[in-house]
Structures are given as C-alpha cells and as structure tokens.
Amino acid sequence: MELPFFPALFSTVKSLVVKQPFFPTLEDWLVNHPKILEFSWINGQTPGASQRFVTLTIFAYISFTFILSQVSRPSLARPVLKSISAVHNIFLLTLSFTMALGCLVSIFSQVPNFNTLVCFPKRTSPSGPLFFWAYIFYLSKIVEFMDTLLIILGNSMKRLSFLHVYHHSMVVIMCYLCLDSVQSAFSVVLITNCIVHVVMYTYYLMCTLGIRPKWKKMVTDFQLLQFWASFLIMAMLVFYHFTGSGCSGILSWCFNAVFIVSLLFLFSDFHAKSYSPKVKGN
C-alpha cells in the first residue's frame, strides 16, 4: 500500500533530475566513486562503529565541556579566534552542502521508488552510497563539538545552554543507532538537517566576519520546520511498516521519535524566549 501524491511527486522529480546533463558527472563523483560505492558499515570494524566509541566520545565531550566551562582558561587573541571560527564555519558549511547533495544524488541514482526511500526492506545491508553519506554525517556530528569549544574560548557562556550540550550529545547517539540498525528514511532526515546547517553556518560565518544578518530568527524557524518535516517522514515510515511487510530499523525509530519531540519542545521554548514581543521590547 502506498501514500497518495508523494510517490508520484518523487517519480516526477527523479525523472527530471536524472535527465539533466550535469547529473552523470555528479553521479560519478558522489555515487560511483569506489570508496563510496563499496562502503559498508560493519560494527566493530568501521572506524567509530561501536557502542564503546560512542559512549567514550559522549563522555569525553560532556566532561571536557564541564571542566573547561568551570576553570580559568587562556584567552586567545580575538583575530586568532575569529580566524579559527571562520575556517570551522566554512568547513562545516561546505561539508553540509556536500552531504546533502551526495545523499540526494544517491537517492535519485540508487532508490527505485518513494516506498523504498521511506521504508527500507527488512535485512537491508548498511552498504553503498546512502550509508556512506550517513556515515560521513555521523562523523560530522563529532566535528561539530568544535562549536562548543569555540563558545568556551570566546567566553560566550550564555550560548552554552543545556539545549546546546544536549543536542550535540544526543545527535551522535541518534546517528549511530540509525546506521547500526539500518533505519529507514534516515537519508531524508540527513538532507533536511544538512540544508538547515548550510543556512546556520552561513549565518555564523557572516557574524564571524563582522556582518550581522537580520535573519537570525529564520535559522531557528528552519530548525523547527526541520523537526516537523521529520515527524511527517517518521509518520510515513510507521504507515508503510504496518501496512506492508515491515521496515528496517523500526526500534531506533522509537528513540528518534522521543529525541525529536524533546528537541521540538526545547527549540520552541528557546524561540519563544528569544523572539517573543515581550523579549524584543526589553
């Protein structure tokens, strides 16, 4: 059984995109490269693919964040800090764009229909281009720990909120579970998250360069929109799971559902406190 509208839309967009003259070139670079095409996630063998690695990584992140936020720290010269921040933002902006594009091209190249995109068949192997980009996405969330270090080194402690640390910690666990359980629809969530991060790191980069864009609120709006889009995709996953032969990774879906609900609540609270008329009036 299929949902109306979305399968037809997917087929139409796919047929249009693959006919474009630039698509074969993108496919060669982002899908058919041997390192991407032959990728396979193997627990205990692929670097970072173990519960021990995730546990130690999260523990180290939280511990160092707490310690560095409490002790006196050597202050970096402002030009040095701005240079490091600029390089960091450019790197993550570029990486987010590449991951979104790579995953999108992989979908149009490798996924036959909308049903398969949302609901991987049971016993799907975590290998190939889609899982390569999911793996890079997982590693990028560890690189994003640098956000926290830059906040601490810049003495911007007001930005070091519970939401910030919670989000950075839990998203690594989410990515690991999605890869290890071969969760369906994760590639769609990856694309939406990377698009939001392109906007977000563009904003951070402009701030670092001394430009204060007037669309700060739009960054948070995009994040909230991303969570609602994730709910829609996850609802589709459940629909296909219970109306068909089942979808891969349904157990990790439960973790992600709780995680996204918590993020929606926390970001909505942040949005209300930051952009309400009462706050603006103060």
Rank of each mutant, 00 (worst) to 15 (best):
D180Y: 02
F131L: 13
N115A: 13
V87P: 14
D147M: 02
T192H: 08
S125E: 15
M99D: 01
Y204R: 13
S187A: 15
V171L: 08
I195Q: 14
Y204L: 06
V143P: 11
M157C: 15
M146P: 10
R159G: 11
V189E: 12
R159S: 15
Y135W: 15
V189H: 03
S127L: 04
V189D: 04
T116K: 01
C194N: 11
S140E: 03
L93W: 07
F91P: 05
I152M: 12
L163V: 04
H197N: 14
V219S: 13
F162R: 10
F120V: 05
R159F: 14
S181C: 12
L150Q: 04
H197M: 09
S187K: 09
K158V: 11
R159L: 15
L139T: 01
G102D: 10
L179R: 02
W215T: 10
K216A: 03
F91A: 12
I107H: 00
Q110F: 09
K141H: 01
D180G: 04
M200V: 06
I90S: 12
F162M: 11
I151S: 08
H168V: 01
F114R: 08
N155D: 14
L93A: 09
L139I: 01
Y138D: 02
F114Y: 06
L130C: 05
R159A: 14
S106Q: 04
M200L: 13
S127D: 15
L160M: 10
H164M: 14
V143W: 04
T148P: 11
T124K: 06
V111K: 03
V198C: 13
V198I: 12
T124C: 15
R123M: 11
F145I: 03
K141A: 00
F186E: 06
V188K: 13
I142H: 08
L117A: 08
L163E: 10
H167L: 02
F91R: 12
L150I: 12
L95P: 08
I136M: 07
Q183I: 00
L101G: 14
G154S: 06
Y176S: 00
F132E: 04
T202K: 06
Y166T: 09
T124V: 12
F162P: 05
V143D: 04
L149W: 07
L177K: 07
L117C: 09
L153G: 01
I151Y: 04
N89F: 11
V172F: 08
Y203S: 08
V171A: 02
I107R: 11
L139G: 02
A134K: 09
L101Y: 05
V87D: 13
V118R: 00
R212Q: 13
S161H: 07
M146A: 14
I152Y: 08
Q110T: 12
M99E: 02
V188S: 14
L150C: 10
V189Q: 06
F131A: 00
P126M: 10
